[in-house]
Design a protein around this nucleic acid. Structure first.
Lengths: 336, 336
DNA sequence: ACATCCGATGACAACGTAGTCATTGACTCG
DNA sequence: CGAGTCAATGACTACGTTGTCATCGGATGT
């Protein structure tokens, strides 16, 4: 600004006025200053401006597990869109399963004076995570609960989504429904398993020996599926898209009767599979924008009590979930 | 720092020394200062530090078309990982097809004094884009060429990738190979079409009436495919994953002989489709990390001439690209 | 005992910007 | 014609930090 002022023959303060479109500058002065700005290629230093004004940086930090997954990508897109609507910029970082890395990201974001943090890595333990959250920066947890519900959180309706899958299958006549979940370290994994158990209990369906949680190795899946077949299982619910894909791979490589299948998480090509996969679609972008909304509300009113938002899921019925052999025809369409 | 200094009974400068681990502070003083820091929850203001030091902000800005797509998500993950390895933070924003929005993002990033820009939106016209690039911030274009090659760029081997698809099909005995591409506004769309034309010419294959570029509406695809069938086409190459999916949908909903099909861009579930789709896989993460590498090289040596990096593609042969009827049958490999 | 040196520390300025307040000069009004 | 008003502008300072240089007290050497 000093250079511009010299070029325009004014003071630095007048340049500041022109840059910020403050009133009280003669039109011809504005003109001179703007010409000097254009000539010198001047651009205001936002950091210095924020420092002097004491205003916020108009930015938020998003910590993810891994940007490349479809769920996190859609979530990030939702966050970014809503943030941009408010004129905020988005800083992103992935923890990649490393709690220390997540902590460093949080520290780095806080040091940059982001206005708020959105925290989504689901591999990092609750204790580690909440212990590392700076107390002076508003944070919203995404797709994971706050340890003591002392922080705003946005969750998918995991239990309800799984329940909708179970009810859908039960209504089509399935009486023995199994659950294939991912590693128990994931909170969502445990949560969905519990949703499955609750829905089955509500329906009076047995679940003994029908739950398999753990790493999604081909061996484990083969063992689980063959055990279930022997036990008369006619339908399987998978707890996330990695489990769905793993089960699909298994079924793809083996012959024999195919259980009905509903997968949690939408798959991009679900309707091009054979058969098209019935899924419980999560609204990842909705989770992201809801989190940004919570954050802005807290920025406006810091005294708000911690809130928890549950984003509904949507059951997308396709053809992988027909009634079991011998059952009556389902309402929507009749397969096999 | 002033508050910390008061609490620790030192000067603010000594706090600065402790915070930056500068030598020449008595251990007990360090101890006192650190206790005060912990008590007050002090955290250094990185913005002020950068301002005073005159150093860079250790951040880069990434402008995308749309974060939610798998290509951009993988690209972003590659960028973020490499940036983090250098201790840099990543600012992201989506243009969503709006050139003005892309321009605003660039301006906002530049005002935040990012050290460099990575520009990937492929819907924004070259002229608009390059006109809006600030001359004083190093930029790398991703997956799109620089108008006059005056800027560093990282491109996928579009022509080579398409050529590998054409050669693969030709070697399996196809003599009439069609090309289904996305809207001609996309540079990659034109580029890949040209790659197809060149490869066919090299093989002596005709292409008259075998090229269809445009919006991927069901009507257009149906018209193109039925025309091609009449013309004796036995294989189709699709120019991006949206085209692949569109063609798959069309083939899925219709009966009759199925042309061999190779799709540009990997699909997550390509191997679960029926038949599993042969694809030309792009290394999106590789494009991202290569772009970051180019950027850091330019930051180190600003006088470097503009460079262009081409990231190779990889042909993933699956079962959707068998020889035409009448040729010998390949089980999994076996050509022609 | 005195000069010297050195480790530890603090005072001050400056990075680029914007808020506060004073100054200037032209203009209006009685 | 003098006082008052007002628009336009600039001088100065502070935001939180770090580089430079000065200061201070004690230990060392002769």
């Amino acid at each position: 600004m000093v250079d511009v002022a010299r070029a325009a023959g004014t003071s630095q303060k007048t340049v500041s006025r022109v840059v910020n479109a403050e009133p009280g500058v003669r039109p011809e002065t504005i003109e001179r200053v703007q010409r000097a700005i254009a000539e010198l290629g001047f651009r205001r230093h936002d950091g210095a401006s924020h420092l002097r004004r004491g205003t916020s940086t108009a930015s938020i930090g998003l910590v993810l597990e891994d940007l490349a997954g479809p769920f996190y990508a859609a979530l990030t897109a939702g966050v970014e869109r809503r943030a941009r609507e408010h004129g905020y910029l988005l800083l992103t970082g992935s923890a990649d399963g490393d709690a220390e890395r997540a902590g460093r990201l949080v520290q780095a974001f806080a040091a940059r004076r982001v206005d708020g943090l959105l925290i989504a890595p689901n591999l990092v333990g609750d204790e580690v995570l909440t212990a590392n959250l700076p107390p002076d920066v508003p944070a919203v947890l995404l797709d994971r609960p706050s340890a003591d519900h002392g922080t705003d959180e946005v969750l998918s309706d995991n239990a309800g989504g799984i329940a909708s899958a179970v009810h859908h299958l039960a209504e089509r006549g399935h009486r023995s429904i199994a659950y294939l979940g991912d590693d128990e370290r994931f909170w969502t994994s445990r949560q969905r398993r519990d949703g499955y158990l609750a829905a089955c209990a509500e329906r009076g369906l047995g679940t003994d020996g029908l739950v398999s949680l753990g790493a999604l190795t081909p061996e484990r899946i083969a063992a689980a599926v063959s055990g279930w077949a022997a036990a008369g299982v006619t339908a399987v619910v998978t707890g996330n898209n990695r489990a769905s894909v793993a089960l699909l791979h298994h079924l793809h490589e083996r012959t024999g009767p195919r259980p009905a299948h509903v997968g949690f998480d939408e798959l991009d090509l679900a309707d091009l599979l054979d058969p098209p996969l019935t899924t419980v679609a999560q609204d990842a972008a909705g989770i992201g924008s809801a989190a940004v909304d919570l954050l802005f509300e807290r920025l406006a009113t810091p005294t708000l009590p911690p809130r928890s938002v549950v984003v509904p899921t949507r059951l997308v019925v396709r053809r992988s979930s027909p009634p079991p052999d011998g059952a009556s025809a389902p309402p929507v369409r009749n397969d096999r």
